[in-house]
Amino acid sequence: MEKAMKKQMAFVAMTIALSGNVLAHGDKPKHGGVVSTANDMSFELVNKDGKATVYVNDHGKPVDTAGATGKLTVLNGTEKTEVALEPAGGNTLATKDDAKLAKGSKAIAAITFADKKAVNARFSVK
């Protein structure tokens, strides 16, 4: 019983942590996705045809993603999927493989920019 309670508490804590950044700073989706803010930067996660794209902006200005690397971790219930994020031109990073994003999924984009600055953006897919 105690083990089940700890799992429930961990789930509640993760849900609160993941949902806390959505629409921070009044950012609104520009590409039909969900928005998260981390390190004063805005990230929009867009799911189209199973592929995920992350748009990166700093105070409304596009951030060049050339030379960046990243990983998108998607949690669907107890299923965990990890896919690589690669620069896709301009201010975008995209997956080549199916990201398995679905309504209710939680996702974390771990991005390291060319200047070695690392950022984690958390998303709750609606």
Rank of each mutant, 00 (worst) to 15 (best):
K7G: 06
Q8A: 12
F11K: 15
A13I: 07
I16T: 11
A17P: 01
H25N: 14
H25D: 15
G26Q: 13
K28H: 05
P29Q: 00
H31K: 11
H31G: 05
G32Y: 08
G32T: 13
V34M: 07
V35W: 03
S36E: 02
N39G: 04
D40L: 06
D40F: 11
E44Y: 04
N47K: 09
T53D: 13
N57H: 13
H59Q: 14
H59D: 11
H59I: 08
K61L: 11
P62E: 12
V63T: 07
D64P: 07
G67T: 00
T69M: 03
L75Q: 11
N76H: 02
T78D: 15
E79P: 00
T81Y: 06
E82S: 13
V83L: 03
V83D: 05
V83S: 05
E86D: 10
P87A: 08
P87K: 12
G90E: 02
G90R: 04
T92C: 04
T92M: 14
L93E: 07
A94S: 15
D98N: 15
D98W: 10
K100H: 02
K100S: 03
G104A: 03
S105L: 04
K106H: 07
K106I: 05
A107C: 02
A110Y: 03
A110G: 02
I111P: 03
A114F: 03
K116W: 00
K116T: 03
A118T: 13
A118I: 04
A121Q: 01
F123V: 00
S124F: 09
V125Y: 15
